[in-house]
Design a binder for these strands. Structure first.
Length: 272
DNA sequence: CACCATGTTAGCGG
DNA sequence: GCCGCTAACATGGT
């Protein structure tokens, strides 16, 4: 479920709470999520200061003072919380980074996800992100860039929107929402969609992602006690997870259908 | 108990 | 090479 808005929300919290703080201790409870032996990982990261927090697609990148970069991918269910050191919940975490502030940056349920460390601060050299397509909210990602990418494709629009090599960071929730906003069925073949309709997809995507970031995305678990932001976009969802509920536009029940192996949610009357 | 959901990648056949 | 489909991965929910 975490996509660009959810990850960006976490990054905003991290920028306000862990940048410029030093990691004083680490506990790894799921070593298979690492790209090295836990001993090596702990040796390289303990004592380092977090210099910067970045995001590429659904991946969080922490720049460390020893010119290493930590990449964190939550995959399906992962999430981060800032907890007081000693909180009993730390026992259930996948990984705990204790900070000089007395708090702990805690990662939960990194089941299929990962925590990787690379000896570089150059994102181009990091294989986790080097294969990804453009960021949909970047200035370089113009309408003509989007049209050029999609016009040559042959498949259905929804799986293509979720193709990380084409555009990075869009998952099931925001692909469904963007297609409702565009009034296009998820199964529509891109080659049968005209330029005007395809442009609408571009504008809807950019608008929805920006609004969702402003409202804190749809992830339901707060980052800290002070967090009043996370999950604020849940109430804005028009089709995702609304199977059987009335469309906000026309009252027809929202349908769910497998498209490209994933659940597509759509309004059968509004989308064509 | 079986099955589903989720993101990503790999493999297979068309 | 691209497309669509399936399976695998970890885990919890029905």
């Amino acid at each position: 479920m975490p996509e660009i808005p959810e990850i960006e929300t976490v990054c905003q919290h991290l920028r306000g709470s862990v940048v410029a703080t030093t990691i004083t201790g680490i506990t790894i409870n799921r070593s298979k999520n690492l790209n090295m032996e836990p001993d090596e990982f702990i040796r390289l990261v303990t004592g380092q200061t977090i210099i910067a927090v970045g995001r590429r697609a659904k991946i969080i990148l922490l720049t460390l003072s020893n010119r290493h970069t930590l990449t964190i991918h939550f995959m399906l269910e992962g999430y981060a919380q800032l907890l007081e050191d000693g909180n009993p919940a730390l026992q259930q975490a996948s990984a705990v980074f204790r900070l000089a502030s007395g708090r702990a940056l805690t990662l939960f349920k990194i089941n299929l996800g990962y925590i990787h460390l690379f000896p570089t601060v150059d994102w181009q050299e990091i294989e986790d992100v080097s294969q990804l397509g453009p960021e949909p909210l970047s200035a370089e990602f113009t309408l003509s860039h989007f049209l050029k990418l999609f016009k040559v494709r042959k498949g259905m629009i929804k799986p293509l929107l979720m193709n990380q090599k084409l555009i990075a960071g869009i998952g099931n929730v925001y692909s469904n929402e963007a297609l409702f906003c565009s009034r296009l069925l998820p199964t529509r073949k891109v080659k049968d969609i005209n330029d005007e309709e395809l442009s609408t997809v571009y504008y809807c995507l950019r608008k929805l992602l920006s609004q969702a970031i402003q409202l804190g995305g749809v992830y339901p678990i707060p980052y800290s006690q002070a967090d009043r932001l996370t999950g604020g976009y849940l109430a804005q969802l028009k089709v995702a997870y609304r199977t059987g509920k009335p469309c906000f536009e026309c009252k027809a029940p929202i349908q769910a259908q497998r498209v490209g192996g994933r659940n597509a949610f759509y309004c059968p009357k509004c989308q064509h």
